[in-house]
Amino acid sequence: MTTTNTGSGSALSHWFSDGWITTRRNLIKIKRVPDILVFTTLQPIMFVLLFTYVYAGVINIPGSSYKEFIMAGIFAQTIVFGSTYSGSAMAQDLKDGIIDRFRTLPMSPSAVLIGRTNGDLFINALSLVVMMVTGFIVGWRIRSSLLEALGAIALLLLFAYAFSWVMAFIGMSVRSPEVINNVSFLILFPLTFISNAFVPSNTLPTPLRVFAEFNPVSALVSAVRNLFGNTPPNSPIADNWAQQNPEITVLIGIVLLLVVFVPLAIRKFASVSSR
């Protein structure tokens, strides 16, 4: 028998290594569980085709095409839903006792969460690529500079990443993978549909319009629409600061979500255990 070896290296290099090991675990899962890959690639294609062909004929956006208008909404919706994996995966790991195993290892307490949210980030990046390619094929165009387009992509992925931490926290609190899936549908459908994602918010009845204008998803959609150059010219801008400065609003939102939910989720992780 040799002596116990707990390795060498600094805390920082352990933190990077732990995060990478748990990220790799989630990437292998994506590779091995075909439904995840099918869902993350086919569902966005389906949404792009449904919205651009089914609704494009009946919804008129003055000065623009519905196809151009709708893409930012589809990007945002798909990516917000993509972050819910972290919720159900954390709940499932907790149920299976895998979290118990991780918690008895001398690893960084944030590593499992970092790996999990990185897995979501990868899935979201993949579906974003698929959606953009499908969009190009059906006639969506980026009408801004490369830098602005990259900004749009970055905002989408960052927002989804921050949202993954929220869902991971909820997943560890609710503890049932099934409940998590139902709850996220109940919350995310209204959040994404009562917004400016699919129709201009000024067309909504007043109570819904007010909700839509303060909805963080609306800010995300507006920001992405602006940065891709898809905002219809002369479209009315809501009378609030958030909608007038959607890019900054989204950035503030991302920072707030991370500042609140990263520590909350890490603290939760350090105390949860199966049963």
Partner: peptide, 12 residues
């Protein structure tokens, strides 16, 4: 994976 999380290093 468990070995890496015990910080054994990749080869070991």
């Amino acid at each position: 994976m468990v070995g890496r999380l015990y910080h054994l290093g990749a080869a070991q």
